[in-house]
């Protein structure tokens, strides 16, 4: 019987436990690497303080934002959005079969899976700016190079997450379809994809948001869109125009995020 007035002290867990020596060593190594990285990253409080007046001057020049080139800027924003939509949609279409081949539960052979996974990993590991430079050098300046970059970037992003979503679906309905005698394509289309759909929609919409943000940056290296306008404004010290462009980018990104949240809620509740 337990004495509630005199609770037993034996067996009471310690409030704190010393970390495992290996954990402590790893933490110390990380801390040392971080401090070394601080110096390599060029962090300098002095330079930051010296730069503050410049920041204030540029900030002051940004107000009020310029309205003299609104029309070409709006056209560039539209091109940016169109690049993002086309790049994402084509990227999604290409990602889906690759993801099926890369998913453990549907791949025709482990070698195929390893090859496709390797391809997707390679595409994802190379930064989008590097792809943009490659495509600008290959097909020339302009939105086509940007769109190609976004397609490849979307394949790298969605290929991996689609494959994981496909692997995570409940095995029951595909097994039931196999028991019926359905073919592999029927099983994928009728059981696996409908169950993975919420995850696929989520990933697809994130890819669109990511593509909109990327397409802005891609313009800086000549891959078309509003980024090119931003680079020109900054090079000509027209900070008021740059402010207008930044505001336009902000509105575009917010609009796409709001729209994708709304679509996510709508589509995930739908019926097949």
């Amino acid at each position: 019987m337990t004495d509630l007035d005199n609770p037993a002290q034996d067996g009471m867990p310690a409030r704190f436990r010393p970390p495992h020596p290996l954990s402590a060593l790893l933490f110390a190594l990380f801390l040392g690497f971080f401090l070394w990285s601080l110096s390599s990253a060029g962090i300098s409080i002095g330079e930051l303080i010296e730069g503050l007046p410049n920041m204030a001057r540029i900030g002051a020049e940004m107000v009020p934002p310029a309205t003299d080139r609104l029309e070409p800027m709006l056209r560039s924003v539209l091109v940016t959005f169109q690049m993002a939509v086309v790049g994402t949609v084509i990227g999604l279409i290409l990602s889906l079969p690759l993801a099926v081949l890369a998913a453990r539960n549907h791949t025709p052979h482990p070698v195929v899976r390893a090859a496709v996974r390797g391809l997707i990993s390679f595409v994802r590991t190379v930064p989008d700016l590097a792809w943009a430079l490659f495509f600008v050098a290959s097909v020339g300046l302009g939105p086509f190079a940007g769109t190609l970059t976004l397609i490849v970037d979307t394949v790298g992003f969605c290929g991996r997450f689609f494959a994981e979503a496909i692997e995570e679906v409940d095995r029951g309905p595909p097994e039931a379809m196999n028991a019926i005698g359905a073919g592999p394509l029927d099983v994928i289309v009728c059981a696996t994809l409908p169950m993975a759909l919420p995850s696929l929609i989520n990933t697809g919409l994130f890819a669109l948001e990511k593509a909109v943000r990327s397409s802005v940056v891609l313009g800086l290296v000549g891959a078309g869109g509003i980024g090119a306008e931003l680079a020109t404004s900054m090079e000509m010290f027209r900070y008021d125009q740059a402010a207008t462009i930044v505001l336009m980018i902000f509105v575009l990104v917010m609009a796409v995020e709001t729209l994708s949240s709304h679509l996510r809620a709508k589509l995930i509740g739908g019926r097949g």
Binding site: G172, P173, E175, A176, M177, I180, G181, A182, G183, D186, C190, A191, P194, M195, L197, G270, R271, G272
Partner: peptide, 19 residues
Amino acid sequence: HNLVPRLSVLSNVLHGSMA
């Protein structure tokens, strides 16, 4: 039951015809 959850009852039953 192993029905496909997001599809309609009729679509699920129709899948039997894949036999």
